[in-house]
Every structure is written in C-alpha cells, then in structure tokens.
Design a protein around this nucleic acid. Structure first.
Lengths: 237, 237
DNA sequence: GCAAAGATTGAACAGTGTTTGGAATTTGGT
DNA sequence: ACCAAATTCCAAACACTGTTCAATCTTTGC
C-alpha cells in the first residue's frame, strides 16, 4: 500500500476527529445541536477550516448517518448469525429484537437515520448504499424463509406483485443473493420492516412511554405474532 | 356572551393570522423553515411583537401541532363513522386507510406530530391532550371489537397485562368509554397503532418510495392482514 | 380626561452556517 | 536545495436565526 503522504494522513486524522466530536454532540444533545462552530471550538480551530473537510453541515450529518447505518446493519447481521440458518424463526426474532435494542442504545442516530429523511435526504455514498442494501437484505432473508399462513402475503390476496413494482437496482442484488426470492416475498419483506419499525419509532419518539410502562413485552408480543404470521415455527432450537 | 373587547378581538385575530402564516410556511417548507422573523416580515410587523402572542417559537409549533392533532383525530373519527358499529372490520380498515391518507395529505404536519417529539416535547394544553385521547380511543375501539385469533393478543401468550402497566389518566378515560375493555386489549390497541404507523412513517420519511413504486397496495395488504388477525370478519357490509 | 395596562417598535445580543482574501504550510519536480 | 503549485488555516465579514429590552404608541377602565 502506498504510504499515505503526511498531508493525507493528517487530513484523514482531522476528518475523523471532526466526525468524532460531532458524534459526541449528536449523542448528547441531538442532531439539531451539532453546530459547526461548536465543533470548531472544541477542536480549537477556526470555523472556516471545517469547509476544507466537508462541503456543508449536511454533508457531515450524512457521513454520520452512513456510519450509523453501517453500525446498525452489522448489529442486525450479528444478531441473526447468532442462530443457524436451520432456525429461521430464531433468526427473525433476533433481528427484530436487535432492531429495537440498537434504537434504544442509539436513539439520536436512529432519529438521524429515519426521521424526516425525505425532508433533507442524506447524500448516499457507495458505502452508505451498501449498508442500506445489507439492512434490507436482512429483512428479505426473513421474508424468503417465511411460508406465510395469511393469504395476502403470497399473492392469494387481491393484489399481486411483479418485479417491476420494485426498484431495479436493489431487486437485482436481492435476487442474486436469494435466488428463490419472489415479488410477493419482496413486498412482504417491506411489510415486515414496517411492522418492526412502527412500535420502535413510536417508542423512540416518546409516544409509547406515556401510555405504557413497559414497551418491552409489548414489542416482544408483536414480534411473536409477526414470526407466527410468517409461518415460522418457533422451534426451541 | 360578553362582547369581546376591541383589544381582545384584535388579539385573537392576530394570533390566528400568525398561526395561519406559520402553517403556510410549515406546509410549504417544513417545520425547520418556520421562522419568527419570516412570519413577522410576511405580516409587516416587528420581530419582537411576536412575543406578545407566543412565549417562544416552540410554543407556536406546539399550537400548530395541537391543531393538527385535532384535525387528524376528527379525520379518523369521520372515516370510522362512515361505517356502522355492526361492521367493525370496515371501521378498522377505514381508520387505517384514513391514517395514511391524512399523513400523505399533510406530511409536514404528520412529521411535526410524530417525528422526534421526545427531543422537544410539545407543551400539551387541555385541548391537545383531549385530541390525543380521542386518537387513542379510536384504536382502543378497534381493539375492543377484536376477537383476536392469535394467542399473544389476549393473554394466552407468555405475557399478561394488568391495568397498572398503563398510564392511569388515559386508562380511566378508556375504561369509561369502553366498559368491556381489558388490559390485553389495551395493549393490543397500542400494537395496532404501531402496525399502522410503521409503514406510513417509513413512507412519509421517504424510505419506502425508493424501494417500491406503489406503497398503496402494500399498505392495503398489511391492513387486510391486520384486520384478519384481529378476528374481524371482512363482511362485505 | 387620566392613569394603568397592553401592544408595537427598533435596536441590540448571542448564536448559527457559509464565503472570502490572504497568510502559512506541505507537496512534487527540477 | 530550491521554487512553484496546491492545500490548509485563520480572521473577518455576511446574512441569517431566536430572544430581550427600553421606549413609544394605543387601548382600556375608572
């Protein structure tokens, strides 16, 4: 590997430092409190210097979001892989539990990823989309292993799906990874995501706590119902 | 009724005007772009004058949120009441569809209500909590009419619920409105909310569109599965 | 008609993201 | 070893933001 020049080394170092202090502010006070000048102050540098490393404040937040996405995807993969492929129910359950666990452990990052992203979409680098794909692939795996009891999931319902209903980029990746994937299963995967996301985001946004003391068992019940609905026998592996 | 004094009349008028222009900015550019000075500019008044009507910018947003909450609750109630109490499945389905329809028609308000509310909680006036209660009561109605097929919903699962698991304030209201309400049903209502909220919030936050072209049928399928899972026969009323 | 209460003003304060010109520093080539 | 080119850095400025404050103008109740 070509020894990185002195400048280059210093550059990656300071970008990392910027991201680190920004992350600290994000975790402690939320995304809105991530201030350029605050970061510059903490690092003892002039405000303008920031723009040698990031085009804009939004670019910095996008970088943090990409990191968070990677972390979340890795966390979910790890949770699934704690169970063998012969226990799809356990893998699905673990995925769902890990989704909430990560959100509770990193509420600000979770918000940064999923809250109002249509408003100010994060600029996606190749790596960030890779992480996004991996997260989606995790749910697709769950959907492919499912043999749903309910008709609406596998095309018996009133609606049918074709490949053209989905984004071609991701579809090709998903089909390459899971050859047995069908359009209804892909649709089901999105529904599974939505179902996991619903209670978690309500809790993170503080709408569940004032109503119920312990969202934990509530979410567990929902996940149990979800896994059962997917036709995954809850084998006590 | 005591004829409101000239001043009082003018006061309510300008507060309404402030909220109206703020709402316009909210709808067109999002909550972050609701600027005091911008509103003052539009209304041709000095920036400081604003503080004669609202304590802070956050108070204004809370007022807008309260209005939106009322509007949403009314919209959902209207949708349910389009079907008779003898058709609970239709009422549940209508509620779910109306939830998404309102969100799509008022995305910025939807975000204002539900996105990152734990971060900066809206100050709740008596009226706002009333609207909040009515929205919850709508879901509770669905849960009470349900005779869930899946065990985890009515206490057959591993977990059981008692009244103490829930916020006492709302519980009393809910029990007064629905005498047959049980703790598991109350828990189920929150799960129903989460399930409706999941896909909708993913779509509003722009995470569904890049994956699937038509979230409409996807959401319909999810609702159909939900209603079926609640044991509500899809009677063709 | 007059004192008190309320609304309005415009300037000021402390922040913010971003731009710019010039100085300091590192780089690659001769 | 030196020099030109390319980065990096700083300091000041610009255009914003929410909020405060003393001084005005206006309406109210007596």
């Amino acid at each position: 590997m070509p020894a990185a020049s002195r400048r280059e080394r210093h550059r990656t170092e300071t970008t990392a430092e910027i991201k680190a202090t920004a992350l600290k502010h994000l975790v402690e006070e939320g995304a809105e409190s991530v201030a350029l000048r605050g970061i510059a102050r903490d690092m003892g540098m002039a405000p303008g210097t920031f723009y040698s490393y990031f085009d804009t404040r939004e670019a910095l937040l996008s970088a943090l979001a990409a990191d968070a996405y990677r972390d979340l995807a890795a966390h979910l993969r790890e949770a699934r892989d704690a169970h063998p492929p012969t226990a799809p129910a356990a893998r699905a359950l673990a995925h769902g539990l890990a989704y909430r666990a990560w959100a509770l452990a990193h509420p600000q990052e979770f918000r940064l990823l999923f809250s109002g992203r249509a408003q100010t979409p994060h600029t996606n680098t190749p790596e960030s989309t890779a992480a996004e794909y991996e997260l989606c692939l995790g749910i697709v795996e769950i959907a492919t292993t499912a043999t749903p009891a309910s008709p609406s999931a596998d095309g018996n319902g009133s609606t049918t799906y074709t490949w053209e209903d989905f984004a071609p980029d991701f579809t090709t990746v998903a089909r390459a990874t899971f050859p047995t994937l069908t359009p209804p299963a892909l649709a089901l995967s999105l529904r599974v995501w939505g179902r996991m996301h619903g209670l978690v985001t309500l809790e993170i946004d503080g709408l569940l706590r004032p109503q119920i003391d312990n969202p934990d068992t509530l979410y567990r019940d929902e996940l149990a119902d979800l896994v059962r609905g997917l036709g995954l026998t809850p084998t006590t592996e």
